[in-house]
Design a binder for these strands. Structure first.
Lengths: 216, 216
DNA sequence: GGTAGTAAGATAGTGCTGGTATCCACACTT
DNA sequence: AAGTGTGGATACCAGCACTATCTTACTACC
């Protein structure tokens, strides 16, 4: 497969494919001549993963570099790749300062759902503490351990279910691609479903005065 | 309160506040002289909402205009403001084309959880269909009604719980601010908790070979 | 009443991101 | 022999969210 065909099959402009090659997001094809190179199916799959991460996950291209580096490092166990990818995707340019108690709140919540295998240096843990800081700052909102625990309980269900759905693939590269894209795309799916749930339940609430409905 | 104090108290650069004023995101203060204007607490709250939507929700400035327009339209019932805001926040510049069956899949899932009050024109519904198209295209993933139903069931729990947490405020403006920012910030909180859940449960799975742990 | 400080308002410029576009010298196809 | 298309390099561009600067004029303190 030549570049043009690669671009064609992935539905990506040729110029963009060249850009990704420049940036090292896609490995170069095997050169079959001074102005000729051959690309394999693996390139196509990689390209599709990249586009999903960009378009659905809105992951910046600089972060994609780190993601593919992790994916391509055969030494790295699957789990470590996943934590690394999680960190990269959640990273923000400016880690905000936070009130000291926020991390304690987060840790209390994590303990409550029994997540003792979360790394202390997890970016998600830090980010969560930042959000707790924001919530407990000036404003109408507040984040108690009780409320956060409610969220964590539901997140626990979701995470368990999702983990259970994946674990039957064999090939390392394939498994990783499935987990990474799945995490991003289904994450978005869940966000949208939550919004739709809000829409439905809020509608039911506001029309309840007119035509009271049985609460299931 | 003068602009400088407004900016100071919200922790936002003065230049940015001026920018928001120019863009009509913040209403002008009451002019107390040719080069003097007074800002109220409402301006400060509005500014904080805007920053939360921008920084946590990553809502583009142009969309913020639509959000504040909806918030300021006193004629609009709370529920309609919320659906409008949901649409604005989920909107994408390029609505992708999709395979026709995707919308049917989405509707089947919505029916399964009983969300019959979701508007047909909801952007979230369309977006979800786009994602289903993507998932069922070439690639390692697939989206069945069964799997999506699992997600929807959990989203239903979450949405119910969240709706129940809000409904005790009185003032329209205050209620809306709480709902809009809460939806955005707690949405992010949940996303992070889901990631942390993945990290924990996947770690447990991969270490299970070495030291088998009782599944709770 | 003079003067330093700052406000409001307007206009222009900046830095970053994620691509596009163009050019080139050459090889493969027909 | 002609024409299309390649890899590779470099330059360019559009959008976004600010940021900087400049002007005019009021205000508050001495």
């Amino acid at each position: 497969m030549l570049v043009s065909e690669l671009a064609e099959r992935a539905g990506v402009p040729l110029a963009t494919v060249k850009y990704y090659l420049r940036e090292g997001l896609l490995p170069a094809g095997v050169t079959t001549g001074p102005r000729r190179a051959e690309y394999a199916e693996a390139h196509l799959r990689r390209l599709r993963v990249l586009r999903l991460l960009r378009e659905v996950g809105e992951v910046p291209v600089t972060s994609l570099r780190q993601v593919v580096d992790a994916l391509d490092d055969e030494e790295l166990p699957v789990h470590e790749v996943m934590t690394l990818v999680a960190d990269v995707i959640s990273a923000r340019p400016e880690p905000e300062n936070q009130v000291p108690g926020s991390l304690d709140t987060v840790d209390a919540v994590l303990a409550q759902v029994g997540w003792d295998l979360v790394r202390a240096e997890s970016i998600d843990r830090q980010r969560l503490a930042e959000l707790v800081t924001l919530l407990n700052g000036p404003g109408p909102l507040a984040a108690s351990v009780e409320v956060l625990g409610l969220y964590a309980g539901i997140a626990d269900q979701l995470a368990r279910a999702e983990i259970a759905l994946v674990s039957q693939s064999t090939d390392r590269a394939e498994l990783l691609e499935q987990m990474v894209t799945g995490s991003v795309v289904y994450g978005q799916v869940f966000v949208l479903l939550r919004q739709l749930g809000h829409e439905h339940h809020h509608a039911r609430l506001t029309t309840a005065a007119r035509r009271p409905e049985p609460v299931t």
